[in-house]
Amino acid sequence: MPSKPLTLKFLDLASILAMVISTYLALVFAPQEVVMGNAQRIFYFHIGTAWVAMLGFILAALGGIIYLITKDLKWDRFELAAVEVSALFFLITICLGAIWARPVWNTWWTWDVRLTTAAVTELVFIAYLMLRQGLEDPEKRARFGAVYTLLGGLSVPVTFMVIRLFRTIHPVVVGSPSAEAQGGFNMDDRMVATFLFALVAFTIVFIDLFWHRVRLGALEEKVEQQKLKASL
């Protein structure tokens, strides 16, 4: 078994450090928001996790495309790792959002564009994982998985556009806000710094976890092969 690469060890340390600093920035360094108070501090991690979840979603679709072209199981592991890590982060995003929404919107959940799209994406991920579980042949599992991530990757943006036809209250902090948004605010410099650092921190954590998962996938495959050899 190949030992853990040095870069990965370094990334492990970097992600721990980045998370500690990011937590400090979000909870202490960033000023308190006037209207929402401390609840606004959730924003930094909410966007951080949402960003890497989206990143994972795109990586998964890319992995799917490359697998279908190359038929190399390496890309299947890449895709599965992206989906798993992304599903985890999306779940965190949704939970954090709900915790934030309770004081600000006075409800845990509303069928808003982003919320619904996030929920649907999470369901696509779960369906993907269930699909893989129902297939034993690794090659077929990889093919079906790739096809499904592609379909998901195409359908989720359309879902977003469709739900936008119904009205929304989700604030748009980065970019132009809609008139009906509730809970939006303007960021001061320290907030921007905290926000950007959180993005970087979560990107590091994502890459670290992603790398670990890809490595785990490779090891899993080796174990499977050894088992096959032993049974023959």
Partner: peptide, 9 residues
């Protein structure tokens, strides 16, 4: 389970 999230739009 596979179809509904994809066909939702």
């Amino acid at each position: 389970i596979l179809l509904f999230p994809i066909v939702l739009p």
